[in-house]
Amino acid sequence: MYPLSQTLVTIKSISHLNKTISRGIKIAQISNNVTVAKTTIDASHVEKHSQQAQGWWDPNGPMKALHSYNLIRVPFIRDGLVSCSLDKRTTLPLTNKVILDVGCGGGIVSEGIARLGAKVTGIDASKELVEIAKEHCTIDSRLENNRPTYHCTTVEEHAQHFTDYYDAVVASEVIEHVADKELFIQSCVKALKPGGRIFITTPNRSRLSELVTICLSEHIFNIVPRGTHEYDKFTTPNEVSFLLDRNNCHVQLIHGIMYYPIINKWAWTSSTQLIFALQAVKLAE
């Protein structure tokens, strides 16, 4: 038989062990119950774009393709929001339209649609690019009385405060850089008024797009900084349409876009294999 003192020590040790195990189980249970917050942000892509901030507004620099892109994507947004005959068109057709530019970068699209009279809010996860956008919009005299407003934030955070607020949401060359496409679409639609339009442009996940957007544009002609795109993050018209449909939107049209790197020109095409532009309307509940 064990001495009484040794027996008491053994009992205390067992009791301490049981408490330790119990505490460990509770910690494990707490850890298992923690829900990691979803986000649209892919930090590596934000960093890549932030590194290009200083050359963002150089029309012959690394973002020159985005500058020439405005020649077709700004009219695409305009025509999706305003329908009128040629004789009734004005220089400010988007007056009184409140538009959100998601992933605005340095403000190339934001300024383009603001010059047509729209009240534009641009949001981006990159502090560097938001600062560049804020600085540049003070330069153009055409924006003196209608400068875009810029915020460094995520679309999911912004939509929490501006639900059913915007006449239009623009997401041009953005969805291929986000971490959670479903949350991205859901948040864009949440910020949109019923009856409002959402405009999306993005590379298709096709071998042609991989060839032109990545191989040629990034590695051969050096038009886009290397590493800007990842093929696996590209999406398709069907996938985007499906996400919009799940979020109470009706896709009204899908256009194909062709880019010619050598001459830095964009053109509409019937094929969506390279890049596509999509317009959808948010339906009433």
Rank of each mutant, 00 (worst) to 15 (best):
A191K: 01
I25R: 11
M1G: 15
R147V: 01
F234W: 02
Y165M: 06
T228G: 03
Q6L: 14
I77T: 04
D87T: 02
S85D: 09
T228D: 09
A168F: 00
S110A: 14
R226D: 09
P237Y: 03
S31N: 11
G122L: 07
S31L: 15
T39P: 09
K12A: 13
F76S: 07
Y259V: 08
L66F: 14
L129G: 10
W56K: 05
K97F: 14
N32G: 15
W57T: 02
D245C: 07
L129A: 00
V169C: 04
Q279A: 02
V74N: 09
P261Q: 02
T149S: 08
E230D: 14
V102S: 06
Y166C: 01
N96F: 07
I25M: 01
E230K: 14
L92F: 13
H229G: 08
I275S: 10
S110D: 04
I132K: 13
L283Y: 03
A159H: 02
Y69K: 12
F242G: 03
V36H: 12
P59V: 03
S15L: 15
H177V: 06
L253N: 12
L86R: 12
R205T: 07
I262K: 14
N238H: 13
A133N: 07
D42Q: 11
P75S: 05
D87N: 12
T39L: 07
P93Y: 06
Y69P: 01
S172K: 09
L8I: 15
V102A: 10
S83V: 09
V102F: 09
V102T: 04
E218P: 08
V36M: 10
M258C: 10
A28S: 11
E135L: 08
V212Y: 12
T228V: 06
T228C: 12
P203S: 00
L208I: 13
W266K: 07
I113Y: 09
S270W: 07
G256N: 07
Y260T: 10
D167H: 11
R207C: 08
L274K: 09
A280V: 01
P59T: 06
N247A: 02
Y259L: 04
V34Q: 08
K190W: 01
G80W: 02
E131Q: 15
G196W: 02
V34A: 02
P59S: 00
N32T: 11
E176W: 05
W57Y: 03
R197P: 00
V36N: 05
T269Y: 03
P194V: 04
R73N: 15
N145P: 01
R73K: 13
T39G: 05
K265Y: 10
D245M: 07
Q52M: 13
W268F: 15
V155S: 00
V82N: 05
F199R: 05
S270A: 07
R89E: 08
R23A: 11
S206D: 04
G256W: 02
Q279R: 07
